[in-house]
């Protein structure tokens, strides 16, 4: 298990794309939005929490098809399936590696990029907390989507269609935590729901991902 995680992280660093892709997309979105909205700081700071969340979600989506497709193409997935690792463990590690290479950099970059969107001061901590709690769910749900579409040529579009609706609850509660934080309201309810979604998918979805992966490997 540890070997698989180390290998995936090493590949992400060496092959470039892993760390850089999602992060640079996130950067581009947050740089472009102020130009699109125009010089209205008040409006910008009102939409900033939502923009940061949508940017993070799309940046996550961008790298999902790499989670399993690369291992499928070079045959490693077949070989891993015959290895003494449980399939549930393999997909969990894959999701964890994806979170470390995509979700975690986004969490760390969000406060820096918040400056560009003139994010209100009280919102900074809640944007970081909500992303830290919510992005693991994005990686785990994304791994499920990747498992569903593994082996389909150009499965990326199909995967986006399957995964985006599943991302909606995470987005709603994540952005709600950030918005309420920005307005100085209590964030307890949406934060608990967001954490509930994350823990729920982390506990349950690997079983579904492993099951569809076994079927797709036939």
């Amino acid at each position: 298990m540890k070997a698989l995680l180390v290998r995936d992280l090493m590949l992400a660093i060496r092959a470039g794309g892993g760390f850089g892709l999602g992060l640079s997309f996130f950067l581009i979105v947050t740089v472009l939005v102020p130009f699109g909205v125009g010089p209205q700081t008040e409006l910008l700071s009102r939409i900033a929490p939502g923009i940061l969340w949508i940017g993070a979600l799309l940046a996550c989506l961008l790298s999902l098809d790499r989670i399993l497709a690369l291992d499928w193409e070079d045959g490693s997935l077949d070989l891993l399936a015959t290895a003494p690792l449980p399939m549930e463990g393999i997909v969990s590690i894959k999701a964890l590696a994806h979170w470390i290479t995509t979700g975690l950099p986004l969490v760390l970059a969000a406060p820096v990029l918040g400056v560009l969107l003139s994010l209100p001061i009280p919102a900074y901590q809640w944007v970081v907390i909500s992303l830290a709690v919510g992005t693991p769910a994005l990686s785990v749900i994304g791994t499920f989507g990747a498992a569903l579409t593994v082996g389909i040529k150009r499965g990326g579009l199909l995967m986006s269609l399957l995964v985006l609706p599943l991302y909606v609850p995470t987005l709603i509660f994540g952005a709600e935590v950030a918005r309420r934080g920005a307005e100085g309201l209590t964030v307890q309810a949406p934060l608990l729901l967001l954490a509930g979604i994350s823990f729920g998918v982390i506990a349950l979805l690997p079983f579904a991902s492993a099951a569809v992966l076994r079927i797709n490997l036939r």
Binding site: R7, L11, D74, S76, D78
Partner: peptide, 10 residues
């Protein structure tokens, strides 16, 4: 199998 499961960057 036919493919070796090797990673080009390792």
């Amino acid at each position: 199998a036919h493919s070796d499961g090797l990673k080009a960057m390792l």
